[in-house]
Design a protein around this nucleic acid. Structure first.
Lengths: 107, 107
DNA sequence: ATTATAGTTCGTTGTTAGACGAACGACGAA
DNA sequence: TTCGTCGTTCGTCTAACAACGAACTATAAT
């Protein structure tokens, strides 16, 4: 018989998967430019990288990096409409983030 | 007559103070240990550094650094009860953070 | 006075983040 | 085909981050 011990006692880490997940989302949101993008996308269905480049006072390569970070955190996704890329929220993960923050803020 | 132009057109930054504030809170929440602390404190009135040291698999000096980051972001505060320090949420800023996250998640 | 407890600060190390311009790749238009 | 547009990747630089142990500070207990 195998008893798979995955309790916190065993590994001495009380930090839950939810907390790790939430920290990941928070980390992605922890930069003003990325906050700007997320807020914009939460209010409209999509936006294009080029539009953001014009609005934000950063190099387009920097914007690419920020968008990449948001993609890797799972909060946004991009769809190619050659030659442009259209970005939108990943609704599933956005919902998950909402639920996690909701829980900690007791809302 | 002085006209103080502080519009976004003038300085070409559309990023609002709220977004910056929110990014600051998110940045502080963007580490699992700090997430753990905040969640614990949101559920109970206070905790002691020493208790956290025993619960978390990190050096106490590392914990001090994390607590310092949360203090500097304004999310927690410490009160000396020699020889211990009692930490609790900064209710005002916690509320502010709640409101900001509430707004972006449309809750 | 010394010792013990509790927690912070310091210094170090290695990693990551965020900024940029240049080079690049993927298209569509001419 | 070349050229232009669009956005990404690369390389570089500097700063920030997160880990640790040791030294330090502030107390209370002996």
């Amino acid at each position: 018989m195998f008893v798979i011990l995955r309790t916190n006692t065993m590994f001495k880490t009380p930090i839950t998967g939810k907390q790790k997940k939430m920290a990941r989302y928070a980390k992605a949101m922890g930069h003003p430019v990325r906050m700007y993008v997320l807020e914009l996308l939460s209010k409209q269905s999509c936006c294009y990288s080029g539009d953001l480049t014009e609005e934000l006072p950063i190099a387009k390569s920097t914007l690419s990096q920020h968008l990449k970070e948001l993609k890797e955190a799972g909060l946004i996704q991009g769809e190619i409409e050659a030659p442009k890329i259209r970005y939108c929220l990943n609704r599933e993960n956005w919902k998950e983030a909402q639920i996690l923050f909701e829980a900690i803020f007791d809302m």
